[in-house]
């Protein structure tokens, strides 16, 4: 039983990180129906921004409180990642809006490769480690939960609520939902569609940067290829949860995290990814729009 709960905690932490990245995929897909493949690399870039801020902070102000350092890392990473994602949208996606469906998909893959190679060249191809920032571990009834895991799960819960509130209760969110439903009609009603889409990219990037910072704090290492695997898993999470749905993205992330760790716990780890993606396929056969996704209604 303790073993089961322990693996549950591990899975929830991993799933939270996937979920945070998945929100970015799902928001962008929801609003312009496009998969932003560069999103995983924005997440990696956020991790690198946090790493650079951390190195600068510790060399300039030795002995800075960890909470403050983490907060500054997170904020700078959010700003950097948002700037990047905004620029990408502006130069690579916006000019192609209205062209055939595959065009932005190809530029997205191109941007993903460009970003990871850019980081490889400028930051070097090696793993960049940081010393452990948060090291407290609590032992409750035989289960060890680290402070890092609690932070990650809490931050995911808070950010999901904040973003849900923005999308469902603010004028910005109303504009986003209107753009999602019918871009032309929204524009006729006075919504600045381009601006709304840009803001969506910025929001997604900010979340990816938080995930990147958490990833750096949790694993202590970041490398230029890190955008790929978490990116693919997060995209899977978004599809599993129902692409376009915010709670669905987080739910999908948690599910994938849990499947991975529980499969590893009771079966052979070699087949972990086989299991994860088989479950994805089975879910999609019975619920083609994902767990929380609404079936696409043909607009007339």
């Amino acid at each position: 039983m303790e073993y089961f709960v322990q693996q549950l905690v591990n899975g929830l932490t991993l799933g939270s990180i996937y979920g945070m990245i998945a929100i970015g995929y799902t928001m962008v897909y929801g609003i312009i129906g496009m998969i932003n493949f560069a999103h995983g690399d924005i997440f990696m870039l956020g991790g690198f921004a946090a790493l650079i801020v951390f190195l600068a902070l510790t060399s300039l102000f030795a002995g800075i409180p960890v909470v403050l350092a983490l907060l500054i890392m997170m904020i700078v990473a959010m700003i950097m990642a948002s700037l990047w994602n905004w620029t990408i949208e502006r130069v690579a996606y916006r000019p192609l809006r209205g062209s055939f469906r595959l065009a932005p998909l190809i530029t997205a893959i191109g941007m993903s490769i460009a970003l990871s190679n850019f980081i490889q060249v400028t930051q070097g191809p090696r793993n960049k480690p940081i010393p452990p920032l948060v090291s407290s571990v609590y032992n409750i009834a035989g289960i060890s939960i680290s402070l890092k895991q609690i932070i990650i799960i809490l931050i995911t819960a808070i950010l999901l609520s904040v973003f849900w509130y923005i999308v469902h209760r603010t004028p910005l969110g109303r504009a986003q939902r209107a753009t999602e439903q019918d871009r032309k009609m929204a524009a006729l009603l006075g919504i600045d569609v381009d601006r709304t889409i840009s803001v969506t990219f910025i929001m997604g990037a900010a979340l990816a940067a938080v995930a990147g910072t958490m990833y750096l704090m949790y694993y202590g290492v970041v490398v230029f290829t890190d955008g790929f695997i978490p990116g693919v898993k997060a995209f899977t999470a978004a599809v599993l949860g129902g692409i376009g749905s915010l709670p669905g993205a987080v739910l999908g992330g948690l599910l994938i995290g849990l499947i991975e760790s529980l499969w590893s716990a009771y079966f052979t780890i070699d087949y972990k990814d086989v299991a994860t993606f088989s479950i994805l396929a089975i879910v999609l056969i019975f619920k083609p729009s994902g767990i929380l996704g609404r079936p696409e209604v043909e607009k007339v």
Binding site: N10, G11, T13, T225, I229, T268
Partner: peptide, 20 residues
């Protein structure tokens, strides 16, 4: 006896298993 993926970052499940 287990095999893991190169490029994976999360080994928490493996470690809990070894601890068990």
């Amino acid at each position: 006896y287990e095999g893991v993926n190169t490029g994976d970052k999360d080994f928490s499940a493996l470690i809990a298993k070894m601890k068990q």
